[in-house]
């Protein structure tokens, strides 16, 4: 399937999307191999979407067994899969979504070791790591940068969700929507992304009050606080006893980042409380939204069409809104 003419079946199956993004974008997707790490709710949705869209090959890595609670957002799993390897339970159902896509599974996390990861990454076109901890994301991102491979990470914490991406120097075509409709025009764009490590050093000093507000800093810092908590405690918050520490971390992060004080000096306690209680849980609608946004962005990057996320998206299921901050990028 790597090259050549599109078959009648492909034309029929992909008709409605080729009309949106064009045949060249479809061709690029068809030629792409994507590495997805960890199969929980967000990855389930992401994989469904990119496989339906017609990528060439999916490599799926997960070492864990299906747990009962995985059935809550994991529609690749059934009751009698509990106890099996996640990737083994899911493989045939993923293949079933689109017989034109090749699916390869890896039932252990050894590929993530420094040496192995570099060679794995060299064999793929894009890396997507879900539900992973911050420190290891930083490490894996550095390896991807070395191999010049676009890097995505995403996940959900209860009603909150995030996507971070590092697309290195990314070139894409942006349809110029201001031009008159009957003279379609496109602009060639180039944008440079920072590493996750650099992104985390971002300061908000330059943003106006209005700009700051628009980015919904409360949910941004709630997520960044979860990341730091996890780095310190080697686990996510799980109960009322963690509320105080998470609040402290969140407020320290707000202050370090020099966020406009007229907008926020502390992350609302009610949000910290609910995040503490729900961080380890996933909810299907939130996974569908974050997995939808994540898959859409992966496809835009592969197609080199339309501006991708730059570079940190947060979704807030309390309102249904999502915003994107530029962390350490112009």
């Amino acid at each position: 399937m790597a090259s050549g003419e599109f078959t009648e079946e492909e034309q029929g199956r992909y008709d409605r999307q080729i009309r949106l993004w064009g045949i060249e974008a479809q061709q690029r997707m068809r030629n792409a191999t994507i590495l997805v790490v960890r199969l929980r709710g967000t990855a389930t949705e992401t994989i469904k979407n990119i496989v339906l869209a017609g990528i060439g090959k999916l490599i799926l890595v997960d070492a864990d067994d299906v747990k009962e609670e995985d059935l809550g957002a994991g529609f690749f799993f059934r009751d009698d899969d509990v106890g099996k390897k996640r990737v083994d339970a899911a493989k045939a159902r993923i293949e079933n979504l689109n017989p034109l896509v090749t699916v390869e599974t890896v039932p252990n996390f050894n590929v993530l070791n420094n040496q192995n990861f570099e060679s794995t990454v060299n064999g793929v076109d894009l890396v997507c790591i879900t539900e992973w901890d911050r420190d290891d994301l930083v490490r894996l991102n550095i390896i991807c940068r070395r191999s010049r491979k676009p890097f995505y990470s995403g996940g959900t914490y209860g009603l909150l969700g995030y996507i971070f991406c590092d697309l290195l120097d990314h070139n894409y075509i942006s349809p110029d929507r201001s031009s008159p409709k009957d003279v379609p025009k496109s602009i060639q764009m180039k944008v440079s992304y920072p590493s996750l490590q650099d992104a985390l050093r971002h300061r908000w000093s330059l943003l106006s009050k209005r700009q700051t507000k628009e980015l919904n800093p409360a949910s941004v810092f709630a997520i960044l606080a979860l990341w730091r908590f996890q780095s310190i405690q080697k686990r996510l918050p799980i109960g009322a006893q963690d509320v105080g520490e998470l609040q402290q971390i969140a407020d320290a992060l707000v202050s370090e980042a020099d966020v406009n004080k007229q907008v926020i000096t502390t992350v609302p306690h009610s949000l910290i409380e609910s995040v503490t209680m729900t961080a380890v849980h996933e909810f299907s609608p939130v996974c569908a939204i974050v997995g939808g946004l994540l898959a859409q962005d992966i496809l835009k990057t592969l197609a080199a069409r339309e501006p991708p996320i730059a570079n940190f998206l947060t979704f807030d299921g309390n309102t249904g809104g999502a915003s994107v901050c530029k962390l350490s990028m112009s």
């Binding site: 008709d15 409605r16 999307q17 009309r19 949106l20 949705e45 469904k48 979407n49 339906l52 869209a53 299907s284 609608p285 939130v286 996974c287 569908a288 939204i289 997995g291 939808g292 946004l293 898959a295 859409q296 496809l299 299921g317 249904g320």
Partner: peptide, 19 residues
């Protein structure tokens, strides 16, 4: 014909359920 993709539908469906 209106172009249509999985991702938009998945996002909208998630938002419908939340609402």
């Amino acid at each position: 014909i209106i172009p249509a993709i999985a991702t938009t539908n998945a996002i909208i469906a998630g938002l419908i359920v939340l609402q």
